[in-house]
Nucleic acid binder design. Sequence first.
DNA 1: CTGGGGAGGGGGCCC
DNA 2: CGGGCCCCCTCCCCA
Length: 448
Amino acid sequence: MEISSHQFHLLEQLNEQRKQDLFCDCNILVEGKVFKAHRNVLFASSGYFKMLLSQSSKETSQPTTATFEVFSPETFMVILDFVYSGILSLTGQNVIEVMSAASYLQMTDILNVCKTFIKSSLDINEKEKDHYLSLSAKSTNSEPAHPSLYRSRRKAKSNPRRSYSVPDEKTNAVNENSWSGYSSYLSSQVILQRAETQLSKRGRKQGSTRKRRKHLGLTQTRDFAQCKSNKAERASGGCSASDPSHISRVREEAEFDAENDVDHDDYGYNHESEVIPKSWNEDDLPRMRFKCPFCTHTVKRRADLKRHLRCHTGERPYPCEACGKRFTRLEHLRNHFQTIHQAGKLICRKCKRHVTDLTGCVVQQGTRRYRLCHKCLAEANFDSIPDDLDAEHSPVSSTGNKRSKWALEEEQKSDEETMEEEPYNLVVRHVNDDIPDEVDEKVKPNLR
DNA sequence: CTGGGGAGGGGGCCC
DNA sequence: CGGGCCCCCTCCCCA
């Protein structure tokens, strides 16, 4: 007979104990603030703590202390409250931080809830935007009238500079009505900052934004994306984990832009095209664009927004079978696979000369493959050239059983383990495997 | 220390 | 709408 309330009471009791600091054997230090908790509860809730505590489990007499600097105490409070109550206090303000922290702590339940939260918010926003679309004037000008704070450098370089006006109250009112929820909140935060700084800093000479960014160590979105990927590679399998630091980076970026008046003199802030340069006539109005809720980037197509969002959510749906590295896009995976694991470039790695099947060989180093011309190969002086290399290493060669060594390894290894390539496993094979179709064949089954 | 190249990542846009 | 291509950028490694 099952008493359903038992679990609830148990959790409630544990939460009470936590609040009264009873039997707490773990101190969590988050940016100077100490949280008390129970080791076994944390162990059961978080992959991160599971790992941490299992390492330090030998010394159980001393309370364990964990220190975090990658998220705020408020964020951790939300997560800890969830752990002890099952209630996750998500808001538009904290969802990104909570998601990143959950990712860091390997708490997939929270992660999924955050994703759903974001997704549903997006749906709401899209519906609202569609409504707004029907109300707003259409335009044929494809040039974004309000390049976002977060713009590609190419765009920034190529866009002619124009003088735009500060958004007036009316346009802001439209904005408030058109968007709601957290995305509106996030954006409005930037808008407010921007409007404030725009007035105070108008007229400041525009220096090199990129230079200044670099100076401050705030190098554009690409950087935090890179950061995420690096983390993903370094740490836990690079699943959907996003670097907690990227949140602050996003903020810093927005703040930096606002602070430094990036393009402010020239562009109105693009919040779904509400801010329109007064000097433009109606024909110049831009097409409606889809706005990212996390940054100020806008795109023309919903699909592009979806793609763009991956750089915020850290989602990497395309894992490489060979090395486990994950990618945000199929094409990136394909490029990676062909270049790294298929020796797709017909160039000798040493002398950089063009090689063909006749003039060179494929060299295997761990899971990496590259080509060497016969001359460089002779200089390299390899002594072992296994005959059955195909069967042993190539993910495309053993078409009979359809299971490559890599594929099998991929199954066996966890994501964490597959991140590192096998070092210095140097073998040479004859060139006969450069069939792109086969590559696709092998890669595609992995893809969603 | 520096420049070049490889690899990875993101945006725009066409099919 | 997804896939794919092209372009550009940054980071990192290596000579």
